[in-house]
């Protein structure tokens, strides 16, 4: 049985207590995306600025549990200053790491995840640096949504920027 220490690794608690890149950016020029976890009511707000294909700045606002807050903080540290394509690769890799639990549910796709096709373009957990500390979350399936909340918001934001959606277009 998974113990609490599998979930709350020291690096996670550190990011929870001292979150990185916390704050807001002026919109525009920054892009603002909200993510909601319907399970617990947590919300994360991701501000991102992309210039010439590079994620030049990123800030995290909102509130949530230690897992959602530390995941957002670790994400911000991992993608800030990186080219958008690298950020997307990190998002894919992180979500692949978080989808392992599908196997335990015994669904039809449990042995053959369609996302495996892109496996060649994802990083293994051991290559994710301190993000790998969040791997223990998959042993607590209810908390996976906490961990992926900010990543989904970031993905949505990058998609919207690529599609030319202005923040004011959304209601």
């Amino acid at each position: 049985m998974a113990g609490l220490e599998d979930l709350y690794r020291e690096i996670i608690l550190d990011h929870y207590r001292s979150p990185r890149n916390r704050g807001e950016l002026a919109v525009p020029p920054a892009h603002r995306v909200e993510g909601f976890n319907p399970l617990c009511g947590d919300e994360v707000v991701v501000y991102l600025e992309v210039n010439d294909g590079v994620l030049t700045d990123l800030r995290i606002a909102g509130q949530g549990c230690s897992i959602s807050q530390s995941s957002a903080s670790m994400m911000s540290a991992a993608v800030k200053g990186r080219p958008v394509e690298q950020a997307r690769k990190l998002i894919r890799s992180f979500k692949a790491m978080m989808s392992i639990h599908e196997h335990s549910l015994g669904g039809e796709d449990s042995t053959e995840d369609p996302e495996d096709q892109s496996e060649a373009d994802t990083l293994k957990p051991e290559d994710l640096g301190e993000l790998a500390a969040l791997q223990g979350v998959v042993k607590f399936p209810v908390r996976i949504k906490c961990a992926t909340l900010s990543w989904n918001a970031l993905a949505q934001g990058l998609d919207e920027i690529a599609a030319g959606v202005l923040p004011l277009d959304r209601t």
């Binding site: 113990g3 609490l4 979930l7 709350y8 617990c40 947590d42 949530g64 549990c65 230690s66 897992i67 607590f140 908390r143 906490c146």
Partner: peptide
Amino acid sequence: LHAHDLAQVLDA
């Protein structure tokens, strides 16, 4: 403490 974190420790 966030309620989820509290509930997680209580579960243990």
